[in-house]
Design a protein around this nucleic acid. Structure first.
Length: 534
DNA sequence: TTGACCACGTA
DNA sequence: CGTACGTGGTCAAC
């Protein structure tokens, strides 16, 4: 007997009432079975997520996280056991007996890191001992990580807590799924799911003699356009849009592209594959992608065309509370830079209004200038206003410049929440300093990452708070989209959930930012995701 | 079969 | 000469 699962789940359920902070190697491994059993753990320390924050990168298995928590070089982490003859020979040489989890050199034994050692016990007592040792190792590893986080700054501990909650939320999102109106979705998709020949013909009739063109092949499309007198460097949408009036084939082609996208990516096959018989769209979720620190989702959950949002709908007796953060990135810049003047501007509903007043320019100019400062866009009328920004908000601008400079040098940067972001990741093609264009790309990457990354951290703190404060009403977060939340709730509690979503934002922001920076959400109760905002 | 590239959806 | 992600298509190299 290795584990009596039903009994273990009952124990967990009882313990959860005390609201412990669970320590686990990863939510995917440990929280998923709990979520499956209807247990929604409130607080956790997720070793894998903590490792990604502290050390950057994606690889965060027990062997790697343990080594980092103990200050051991990552290149010494033993690889996963392969089960080959060489390993079998070593096992014969040093049989059994070896019950030590940690090797003499300080690394975890690889068969334990891979999860096989714990389950390989021959007797009950034997495997219980191994499981206990494995649990102790997790506690020790988490303690080491916590110490390291505290050394960077106490805020990093909060970040780990929020990321750990987000990782559990990801398991819940994957299991619960996004409620859809299957009939509505089919009505949107089906007209485009006819034979491809018919869709193609609507374009090709504009070019007699070239009916054999494959519209999916950019080279052939370019030749097709050339034949009707349109010479384009590429066939991308924004290029073609400039020629919309030049020839009727261009709008026909653009329309074909839109429909082709839905027919291929979001067609009947997609519905069949990802939507369950309970009318829930399900995909896998990750709490923190490699670079931006954002959540990611598969199955099209994060790039559903706007046209299909009418197919995302509350189920009977329920409503959707949708809320999205307004102007999140400039508000985040105010927090992470500590620019008091810029923070003052966030007190307005529309942050660009006070910025425009201060710069003595029109609002659109102020907006373009702020976006240019954050993203590095240099085209357009931003130049003059950009110099105004430098004078009005020197602290915020210097903060962005520092990130850019660190990136050009290939140095890692840390987000406000403490997540390490390596910038030398383009090193595979050229070393730092070899190619100015690559260095500039690293600079832009770093400058964007500290803003996008911090925004993701605030978002997850908000989502974790919403999750915690609305669960008692039967509400469930069903979609996270970078700055937007969808909460599925019993209809009678929808208004209360909406209020709590707003409160959660104010609370999360207050905990997150030592200075008063205002974050605003546009929150509404709807039946369909497509319904108008406000 | 795999990886590069294009293209395009979302933020 | 904003960045990030996931997905599906074609093509060339296996």
């Amino acid at each position: 007997m290795v584990l009596d699962l039903p009994r273990a789940l009952e124990t967990v359920r009882a313990l959860e009432r005390e609201r412990p902070r669970w320590v686990w190697w990863s939510a995917a491994e440990a929280a998923a079975p709990l979520v499956e059993a209807g247990i929604r753990p409130a607080r956790a320390w997720d070793i894998a997520e903590a490792h990604r924050i502290l050390c950057g990168g994606w690889e965060a298995g027990p062997g790697v996280a343990w080594a980092a928590a103990h200050g051991l070089p990552s290149d010494g982490v033993p690889g996963a056991p392969t089960g080959d003859l060489f390993e079998a020979a070593i096992a014969l040489e040093r049989p059994l007996a070896d019950e030590t989890l940690v090797r003499a050199d300080g690394y975890l034994r690889p068969d334990a890191a891979a999860g096989t050692w714990q389950r390989a016990g021959t007797t009950g007592q034997h495997s219980d001992d191994r499981l206990l040792a494995w649990a102790d190792a997790a506690l020790e590893c988490a303690a080491g990580q916590r110490e390291r986080a505290m050394r960077i700054g106490p805020r990093v501990v909060s970040t780990v807590h929020a990321e750990s909650a987000a990782a559990v939320l990801c398991e819940e999102l994957a299991r619960d799924g996004l409620p859809v109106d299957r009939a509505a979705l089919l009505a949107l998709v089906e007209p485009l799911s006819g034979p491809r020949g018919e869709r193609d013909a609507a374009v090709l009739r504009h070019a007699p003699g070239r009916e054999h063109t494959d519209l999916r092949n950019p080279t052939q499309v370019r030749e097709l356009l050339k034949a009707v007198g349109i010479d384009v460097p590429s066939t991308r949408k924004h290029v073609l849009e400039g020629f919309a009036d030049a020839h009727p084939i261009v709008p026909a082609l653009l329309r074909w592209r839109r429909e082709e996208r839905i027919a291929t990516t979001y067609g009947l096959r997609w519905i069949e594959e990802h939507i369950g018989s309970d009318d829930r769209l399900r995909g896998r979720w990750t709490a923190c992608d490699g670079a931006g620190g954002r959540m990611t989702a598969e199955a099209g959950l994060h790039n559903l065309p706007a046209a299909l949002r009418a197919g995302v709908a509350a189920h009977p007796g329920h409503a959707l509370v949708r809320a999205d953060l307004g102007q999140i990135e400039p508000r985040v810049l105010a927090v992470v830079s500590g620019d008091a003047a810029f923070a003052q501007a966030t007190l307005a509903d529309d942050l660009y209004a006070p910025v425009a007043a201060r710069l003595r320019v029109e609002r659109p100019i102020a907006k373009v200038a702020v976006l240019a400062a954050m993203y590095g866009q240099r085209s357009g009328p931003a130049g003059e206003a950009l110099r105004g920004l430098e004078r009005a908000y020197p602290v915020a601008m210097a903060h962005l410049d520092r990130a850019y400079a660190a990136g050009t040098r290939g140095e890692p940067v840390r987000t406000y929440g403490g997540r390490l972001i390596p910038t030398g990741r383009f090193l595979t093609t050229a070393p730092v300093g070899a190619d100015p264009r690559l260095d500039a790309a690293r600079g832009r990457f770093a400058r964007n990452a500290i803003i996008q990354g911090a925004a993701a951290e605030l978002f997850k703190a908000w989502a974790a708070t919403v999750r915690a404060t609305t669960a008692d009403l039967g509400a469930r977060i069903v979609l996270c989209l970078h700055d937007e939340l969808l909460v599925h709730t019993p209809a009678e509690h929808a208004d209360e959930v909406a209020r709590r979503v707003e409160t959660a934002l104010a609370d999360a922001a207050r905990r997150w930012s030592p200075t008063p920076v205002r974050f605003v959400a546009d929150t509404s109760v709807v039946q369909r995701w497509s319904e108008a905002k406000g």
